[in-house]
Amino acid sequence: MATFGVLVFPGSNCDHDAYHALKHVMNSEVKFLWHKDTDLSGIDFLIVPGGFSYGDYLRSGAIARFSPVMQEVVRFAEKGGPVMGICNGFQILLEAGLIPGAMMHNEKLQFVCKNVYIRTESTDSIYTSGLEKGQILDIPVSHGEGNYFIEQDGLKSLQDNDQILFRYCNEQGELTEEANFNGSVDHIAGIVNKQRNVLGMMPHPERAMEKLLGSEDGKPIFESILNSLSVA
């Protein structure tokens, strides 16, 4: 059975959500990995959770990137190991250079905490293989710096290589300006690297795992992951 590792930085606050989602909803093996840990042996899948690592000092994710565990995460990812960064985790992976681009303050400057709709743009990844192309998911966001930015050439490369997995949309799946609440380039909510093993996404699928808590649309993402890990 696959074992998940959830990183814990000073200031992480979605580490327990990720643990709960995997352990109690998906019945998987999960371990916490402290930011000073350097031993990733026995871990099949890494989650870099949301929060405010190191108080978001300097820029979100900028300091976390230099913690001992991150050097190992980069090595793990470069060997093809799957790494999923959610929210602050996405910001950390950007700073670490595992995914191209950068995060800026939300266009309207507000911290936005609400459920939004995202559209599945590609099913060609271990994260979305169990979803339908165009499938709309109701997933919460909670961030002040989620305004994804990349230069025109970089954006073209993301589009040409089918690296955009999720875009912000409205309930009907349309890419309206209003739906792109944080001002991200090309409505980007989640992307993978070129090798497709590293995912960064701003919305929190780990907080959308139980109907009782509002939505269970995050579940198919974790089901896809588990399926691909059991096949591998």
Binding site: L94, P100, M104, I150, E151
Partner: peptide
């Protein structure tokens, strides 16, 4: 390496 993010 740290103080500026040259992407932006």
């Amino acid at each position: 390496q740290l103080l500026a993010n040259e992407v932006m």
